[in-house]
Each structure stands twice: as structure tokens, then as C-alpha cells.
């Protein structure tokens, strides 16, 4: 009997492709939320497998805070060119300039919280009915409650207490005009699964994920990259450290870890030994105990 056996990565891959194909069939205007981070890059790889040998037929959407790592943006631009896919950019800076949102000021200011409004605007303008996202349930306690197909009302809101049951993997994609779904094919993957898959499938990632020297400063026991738009408090000072990033978001809210892991294999070893959760260095999650849940309810990824 054991001849019909798949290892855990192949099972997760098969499940993700199944979910992606259901969504591609049930929705009219899907888009892939693409941050240039490892999860969205992995998701892109799975989309390719879902379509193969057809080319990916949906665009990529990047919600750009304007405070990105230069490495992410150059990786993103090379990536879309090489893959021959369409990239759309929803700019938070534009939302600020138009007065749709108001920017935070001072020490610890971040545009992370402004992304939801910019995203919603793009959804309305483009009439997207399905947004593929690389979020995983193991990342955060509110995300542990997510469905593969997560319904959003016409305001983009998530109602975690009243979610549609997912039974026997049969997906219900029915919606009213103006509503949409977030679809999370990587729901059952952990950080380690993603890295092991990246190793197996030889997936390219931005250099930020691997150990390198960088100008950094420390805030509340977390190391942050220094860029000239970051406002420091008097006791904070800039030093140079050997670091890497476990998650990549906006510069202002993504903490780094000191590391010497300069290859996928070494990163995997490091994660196995890690004593802090992946998002433990994310300032956006640390603002309160329910920071993620609160943002998600309002339309965050």
C-alpha cells in the first residue's frame, strides 16, 4: 500500500494546487497579492503549477507603502519581467497625497496600518472578486481561525465569528456584487514547510532573507534596518550587524534577526532551532494583543 504515499510537502502542494484551481474556476477577476516575500513567491510558484502548461492568467498586485527595501523592489521588477506577468501597484503614498489616509508621525511611525485602505480602493477600482494571499494559519493566533476561502463583505471586513464552514474540502465561492474572497492556499503550511519547499523546488528569493551586513538600530529588543526616513529617539543609535529577515514587509515594521545563515539549508537549520516565532519581530503585531485580528477585520491581509 505504501507505494501510494506522498511526503508532507507533496501533500501540502497538492492541496494548495487544488484550492488555487477551485478559486480560478469559481471567480471572475482573481489577483495575486504579491509582496516580494517568500510566501507570495512560493504561492506564485504554485500558481504556475496549477496552470501548467498554460501561462499564469492573472495579474499580481503589490500594495506599496513607499517604505520598501530596495532589494524587494528590484527583485520584484526583475521577477515580473522574467516571468512575463502583469504587475499592478497600489500605492499608499498616493493615498496619503490624495488625503484618503493620514500618515502617522514620530518615533515608531509606520505606514503598515494604512495598507488596508489602499488595498480596498484597488479592489473596488479593479472589481477583484478573489485575492490570493500567502498568509498561513501558523503565523498568528487570529490567522489560525482563517478559512481557505475567506469571505469579505462589501467593506472588505472579515467576520471571524460568522465564517462559512468548510466541509470535506468543498469550497463555496458564491458572493454578492462588491463582496470578495481572500484565498489562502498555504493555510496549512508552517514557516519550516515553506523553507523546505523552497529548497526542494529551488525557488529564488530576495537576498534579504539571507545573512548580510546592514546598518541597524535596536528598539524594544528588536533589530530594525535603518533608512533615512526612520525617525530615531535620542537613545537609539545606528550600528552595523550581520542580520537576515524572517519576514519582509515595510521597512518600518519588519524586525531582523542576527544570523550567519547565508543559504537556504542554513536558514532551515536556524528555523529548527529558533526560539522566537516568525512574526515575533513584527512591530505591527506587537502594538496590542489583538493587533492582527483588529487589522484583519478591517481588510488587512
Amino acid at each position: 500500500m505504501s507505494q501510494y504515499q506522498l511526503n508532507h510537502l507533496k501533500q501540502l502542494e497538492a492541496e494548495a494546487i487544488y484550492i488555487i484551481r477551485e478559486a480560478l474556476s469559481l471567480f471572475e477577476r482573481p489577483v495575486l497579492l504579491f509582496s516580494g516575500g517568500k510566501d507570495s513567491i512560493t504561492l506564485f510558484h504554485l500558481l504556475k503549477k496549477s496552470y501548467y502548461p498554460q501561462k499564469i492568467g492573472i495579474p499580481l498586485l503589490h500594495v506599496d507603502t513607499g517604505h520598501n527595501f530596495q532589494e524587494t523592489i528590484s527583485f520584484r521588477d526583475t521577477f515580473v519581467q522574467k516571468e512575463g506577468v502583469k504587475l499592478m501597484v497600489a500605492s499608499v503614498e498616493e493615498s496619503i497625497d490624495k488625503g484618503d489616509v493620514v500618515e502617522e508621525k514620530g518615533v515608531g511611525a509606520s505606514r503598515n496600518f494604512l495598507q488596508s485602505a489602499t488595498l480596498m480602493k484597488s479592489i473596488e477600482e479593479n472589481q477583484f472578486d478573489c485575492l490570493f494571499g500567502g498568509a498561513r494559519r501558523d503565523e498568528e493566533k487570529a490567522r489560525a481561525k482563517e478559512r481557505f476561502f475567506s469571505h469579505r463583505n462589501e467593506f472588505g471586513e472579515w467576520d471571524p465569528k460568522n465564517q462559512r464552514p468548510e466541509l470535506f474540502g468543498l469550497q463555496n465561492g458564491h458572493l454578492r456584487r462588491g463582496e470578495h474572497f481572500r484565498v489562502f492556499p498555504l493555510s496549512n503550511w508552517t514557516e519550516l514547510d515553506v523553507w523546505q519547499y523552497i529548497l526542494e523546488e529551488k525557488i529564488d528569493l530576495p537576498s534579504l532573507y539571507f545573512a548580510h551586513e546592514r546598518r541597524v538600530f535596536e528598539r524594544q529588543k528588536t533589530i530594525y534596518a535603518y533608512e533615512n526616513y526612520v525617525q530615531l529617539s535620542p537613545e537609539e543609535e545606528i550600528t552595523i550587524k550581520n542580520i537576515r529577515f524572517r519576514t519582509i514587509g515595510d521597512v518600518t515594521c519588519t524586525g531582523a534577526v542576527e544570523s550567519t545563515a547565508d543559504s537556504v539549508e542554513k536558514v532551515i537549520e536556524e528555523i529548527k532551532m529558533a526560539k522566537v516565532t516568525e512574526r515575533g519581530t513584527r512591530m505591527d503585531d506587537q502594538r496590542s494583543e489583538t493587533a492582527m485580528e483588529d487589522r484583519k477585520k478591517q481588510g488587512y491581509f
Partner: peptide, 13 residues
């Protein structure tokens, strides 16, 4: 609601 948890040993996820 149903919540999902993950853990892994050498043998199984």
C-alpha cells in the same frame, strides 16, 4: 470556532 494548530516531529507533520 475551529482553530488549526501545527506541530511536527522527525516522523510526521
Amino acid at each position: 470556532d475551529v482553530a488549526y494548530r501545527y506541530f511536527s516531529t522527525e516522523k510526521r507533520k
